[in-house]
Amino acid sequence: MLVELVKVAKFPWSPWLAHVRTPFGGTAVRWCGDQAAKPGKYHVEWTIDEDIAWGRNAKPAVGVGPGVRPGGHCVVLRGRLDLTVDGAAVLDFDGSQILLDLADSLPEGVAGTWVELFIEREKIALYPYEL
Rank of each mutant, 00 (worst) to 15 (best):
L2E: 15
L2A: 15
V3T: 06
L5V: 09
L5Y: 06
L5F: 05
P12E: 07
W13E: 15
S14H: 09
V20C: 01
R21Q: 13
P23C: 08
T27C: 03
T27A: 06
A28P: 09
W31E: 03
G33H: 12
Q35V: 14
Q35P: 10
A36G: 11
A36Y: 06
P39R: 12
P39T: 10
V44K: 08
V44I: 15
W46V: 15
T47Q: 12
T47E: 12
D51R: 06
A53N: 12
W54V: 01
A61F: 00
G63I: 09
V64M: 13
G65C: 07
G65H: 07
V68M: 14
V68G: 08
P70C: 09
G71V: 05
H73E: 11
V76Y: 13
G79A: 12
L81S: 02
L81H: 02
L81P: 02
D82I: 15
T84V: 00
V85M: 00
D92L: 12
F93S: 06
D94V: 00
S96C: 04
S96R: 03
Q97D: 05
D101V: 03
A103S: 07
G112H: 01
T113Q: 14
F118W: 05
R121F: 01
A125W: 02
A125L: 07
Y129H: 08
